[in-house]
């Protein structure tokens, strides 16, 4: 019984929660801002990469593959620290932490999104492009109106999954002191000296992402059965 009391006090301390709630709220808002910026940015950059790849220009595609594999091989945290420490030293001026994070995440996530969209494009039969071109649509128009709508639908589960991963990954921005949710949780924990803020952060992430994980499971099952 004593143990339960300890757990309640350290992990689920309501008084503490009340005290630090405003901090977590601000952190959460920053996390949302970060996601709202970085998910579309990575997605569009990735779609552009995949579209360029589909033009089948040999040297360009070799370069694209190196780009994509490079940024899939470097841990995002390493990239993030590199960008936040390196660029100010290089420019001799500070850059906004938010911008640095955005930059690093776009490099990283465009690679993942690019691979997914490329697979989607390759899943569309060749005849679709031919039919579209035979009516006079340009390659880009055919891409925009005929190929991509089908391709993105085919890889919807992977796109959802990658979006979840990206949202989760924004938590590493806490390491470079961007005041997002996890960062604020750790600051709060330092103030109150118990673990409730950390548990609260975990719960907030769960509330945000669990529904998406469930949705993803359903999407994946639907794709599987429609095959």
């Amino acid at each position: 019984m004593v143990e339960w009391e300890v757990i309640r006090f350290s992990f689920f301390n309501l008084e503490t929660l009340q005290e630090i709630w405003p901090m977590l709220w601000r952190g959460w808002l920053m996390t949302v801002q970060l996601c709202v910026a970085v998910v579309p940015l990575g997605f569009f950059a990735g779609t552009i990469l995949a579209t360029i790849y589909s033009l089948r220009i040999k040297s360009v595609n070799a370069a694209l593959i190196v780009y994509v594999d490079f940024f899939r091989s470097v841990p995002p945290l390493v990239l993030l620290i590199y960008v936040t420490y390196g660029i100010p030293l290089l420019l001799g001026a500070d850059i906004d932490a938010f911008v640095a994070v955005l930059f690093a995440f776009t490099l990283n996530s465009s690679s993942y999104f690019g691979e997914i969209v490329r697979a989607g494009i390759e899943s569309i039969p060749k005849g679709q492009m031919e039919a579209a071109r035979s009516t006079g649509l340009t390659t880009l128009q055919a891409m925009r109106y005929v190929i991509l709508p089908q391709a993105l639908k085919n890889v919807a589960p992977d796109l959802t999954s990658n979006t979840i991963e990206l949202i989760k990954a924004t938590s590493i921005a806490s390491v470079v002191a961007l005041p997002e949710l996890l960062r604020m949780g750790r600051v709060a924990q330092g103030l109150v000296y118990n673990a409730t803020p950390l548990i609260a952060v975990a719960v907030i992430y769960l509330i945000m992402l669990w529904p998406m994980v469930r949705l993803l499971s359903r999407l994946e099952r639907r794709m599987m059965s429609s095959r």
């Binding site: 009516t135 006079g136 109106y145 089908q150 639908k153």
Partner: peptide, 30 residues
Amino acid sequence: RQRIGMVFQSFNLYPHMSALGNVSLALRKV
């Protein structure tokens, strides 16, 4: 190509569009 119509063995209709959408796409975009 607007002046050369082509019909394919495997139809190659756009599966994400209605029949009307299939026929009107090039009229609108080209």
